[in-house]
Amino acid sequence: MLKRTEGIVIRSTDYGEGHKIVTLYTREAGKISLMARGAKKAKSRHTAVTQLFTYGEFVFFQGSGMGTLNQGDLIESHHALREDLHKAAYSSYLVEMVDRLVPDQEPNGMLFEQLKAGLSAIEEDKDADIVIHIMEMKMLALAGYLPQLDECVSCGSDEGQMALSVMQGGVLCPRCRLKDPGALVLAPGTLKLLRLFQRMDLRRIGSVEVKAETKAQLKAAMRSFMDVHMGVKWKSRSFLEQMEKYNF
C-alpha cells in the first residue's frame, strides 16, 4: 500500500553498498523506518531527502515489514544544521530524544510540531540550550515524569526558596528540604524559567537572554531529571558535554 506523509529524518544509517535506512518522525504515522534504495549514490533522487534533520513529504510502500521509500520532496533541507558543528550537536540531541523515547507508529501531532519548531529555532540562532530544555520537559511529560514545580511536593507549601529534588519528583520548601539533602537549591529566576518551560510552545519561542549562572542551574536540573528518570545514555549529549568541557 502506498502512503504519503510529512516527516522529519531523525536517523539515517548506511545499509549495504548503496542504500540507507532512514527513521522518520511523521505527522500522520508517528515514528517509522524506511529502506531508501540507492540513497548513498551521488545521483540518487533520494540523496537529499534522506539527510539528517530534513523535513519533507514522503511517499512510501508499506507492506508487512519495513516500508520502502518511493519518493521524497524537500520542504526544508535544514542544511545549516548539518554545516555548523554546534547547531548539529544540539539538533542531534533533539532528534535523538524523539528517536529513543517515542514508540514506533504512535502518532502525536503536537510533538511533531514541537520537533519541527525546535529544529527551526536552532537554525534561526535562538538559544539552543533553552530549546533543548523545553524539549526535555516535553519528553519528561510524555513519559509521566514531569516535575512538580508549583508547590512543595511534600507539604504543598509555595513559600520560601525552593530546592529541586529529582528523587522526590519536584520542589521542596525549606521546611521539607531535609527529605533530600542533595536537592538543588534554585534561584527564583531558575524556578520561574523551569515553570515556563512546562507551558512553552516551541513555535512561539522568541529571542531570550539568560544569565550564565541561571543557564548552569537549568542545565544541572534538567540533566539530573533526564538521567534519573529516562535512564538513557545519550550519544549526542555526550558530544555536547565534550564541547562544553573544552570550551569548543
Rank of each mutant, 00 (worst) to 15 (best):
Y25M: 09
E244S: 14
L2R: 13
K126R: 15
Q148W: 13
V131M: 03
H79F: 02
S120G: 14
S91N: 02
C152Q: 01
N70G: 12
H46L: 09
N247S: 11
S92D: 02
N247R: 10
Q114G: 00
Y246I: 13
Q105S: 11
M243H: 08
Q148V: 13
V95F: 04
A117S: 14
A216E: 08
Y145M: 04
G63Q: 13
I8W: 00
L202F: 07
H78A: 01
E57V: 09
M97V: 00
F225W: 03
G182A: 14
F112I: 10
M226C: 05
I134E: 07
F225A: 03
V153C: 01
G189Q: 14
E124Y: 11
F58V: 10
M139D: 01
L34H: 03
L164A: 02
L193I: 10
G72I: 00
Q51G: 10
K31E: 03
D227I: 05
G56N: 06
K215P: 00
L81D: 00
V166Q: 03
L69A: 04
C173M: 07
A89M: 10
L81M: 00
D180F: 01
E123S: 13
Y145A: 03
A128L: 12
L94C: 10
L85K: 11
V185H: 11
H79P: 01
V210Q: 07
G7L: 04
S207T: 11
V49M: 01
V9M: 02
M35D: 05
V208N: 03
S238R: 12
K179M: 09
R82H: 02
G16Y: 13
T54K: 02
S120K: 15
P188W: 04
W234H: 10
E209P: 01
R177P: 03
L115Y: 05
V9L: 09
V185N: 13
K40F: 11
Q217R: 08
F53K: 10
